[in-house]
């Protein structure tokens, strides 16, 4: 079996365990924590796709995430039913990404300059929503609440039935299913023509364009797909905690997402999930046990990874695995 097929089967089995096995053995309280990790893993996947495969260093992934969360909160408070708000929470970030992508890629903005634009966009949200503290800042019946955020956002409900709320531990299974859908969806996308062209743009934009592909359009679409996934993650996050505040747009939050990808390894989807869960778990654990300051530990890990394991852990272990397999093969023959 090829490594790709092996990996696919492994992930298939793992996601079945995640959806059906974990709820059966884990306590309710831990299950609620896991749901948050899953929402964050979806966010991590979105940047892993945009950055790792599209080569677009987006420092504004939190803008799409936060926009998704806020859209859901505002819409669900006004509508009382969650189906349309969820869709809006995905749609609005996609529209933002299309506009932004048109603005950036068609202007040939790249690299660090692109990072600055996306960062600036998320900070615009941060300041604007932060300044919305007064009574007069509301959309419909939803008050934006400035830096205090929006409390008591209604949970997701069974489509068409607002009284059947899917909250607390019940949110786990839908979230886990969504993670699996996003993961396998992205793998399928990357195996398609679109995915191959996207990766070839990452490798060499000029050559890909000379072959007749419109890199600007493809990058815009890729950014929009990533934005939709980030928006979905934002919706889950907001529904999970029944709360959203402008910190989702802050620089610190953006740094976190980038760190997950870096730990797991740029250019792998599995790594993005693992990196996210590892770092989230570590941060929670450090926060609870107070063994060391969270920033010191995470910062040191961040630096160490860039210097020592620049490819991230998953590619490193994959290479190690390959080497071992080859050795064994040679020994056997």
């Amino acid at each position: 079996m090829s490594r790709n097929a092996l990996g696919l089967w492994t992930m298939g089995v793992l996601s079945l365990v995640l959806v059906f096995g974990v709820p059966a053995i884990v306590e309710t309280f831990a299950l609620i924590d896991f749901t948050l990790f899953i929402a964050m893993a979806i966010l991590s996947l979105s940047l892993a796709f945009v950055w790792g495969f599209g080569g677009i260093l987006c420092f504004g992934q939190s803008a799409f995430f936060g926009l998704g969360a806020y859209t859901y909160a505002v819409a669900v408070i006004n509508m009382g039913e969650s189906t349309v708000p969820i869709l809006l929470g995905i749609l609005l970030p996609v529209i933002l990404a299309l506009v932004l992508g048109y603005f950036m890629f068609y202007g040939r903005v790249s690299d660090v300059y692109l990072a600055v634009i996306t960062l600036a966009v998320s900070l615009v949200f941060y300041y604007l929503i932060g300044a919305s503290a007064g009574e007069e800042y509301k959309i419909g019946s939803a008050r934006l609440g400035g830096y205090n955020g929006m409390p008591s956002v209604p949970p997701i409900n069974v489509p068409g039935n607002p009284s059947a709320a899917v909250e607390y531990e019940a949110l786990y299974v839908p979230a886990a299913v969504l993670l699996a859908v996003v993961y396998f969806g992205l793998r399928a996308l990357l195996a398609s023509d679109f995915g191959r062209v996207l990766v070839s743009i990452r490798e060499n934009e000029a050559r890909t364009e000379l072959l007749g592909y419109d890199a600007r359009r493809i990058k815009t679409v890729a950014l929009a797909i990533g934005a939709g996934i980030a928006g979905l993650s934002g919706v889950l996050f907001c529904a999970w905690g029944a709360y959203v505040s402008p910190t989702v747009f802050s620089l610190v939050f953006t740094a976190q997402i980038i760190m997950w990808i870096l730990v797991g390894g740029l250019g792998t989807l599995t790594g993005a999930i693992l990196g996210c869960v590892l770092i989230q778990y570590l941060a929670t654990w450090l926060g609870e046990t107070k063994i060391a300051d969270v920033n010191i530990v995470l910062g040191a890990i961040f630096v160490a990874i860039v210097l020592l394991v620049p490819s991230g852990f998953v590619p490193m272990f994959a290479r190690l695995g390959d080497t071992l397999m080859r050795r064994r093969g040679e020994a056997g023959s």
Binding site: I296, L298, A300, F302, V303, V306
Partner: peptide, 12 residues
């Protein structure tokens, strides 16, 4: 990225 990590470290 490395200096971003450094920045977190120094804040902590």
């Amino acid at each position: 990225l490395a200096t971003w990590g450094l920045s977190l470290f120094l804040i902590g």
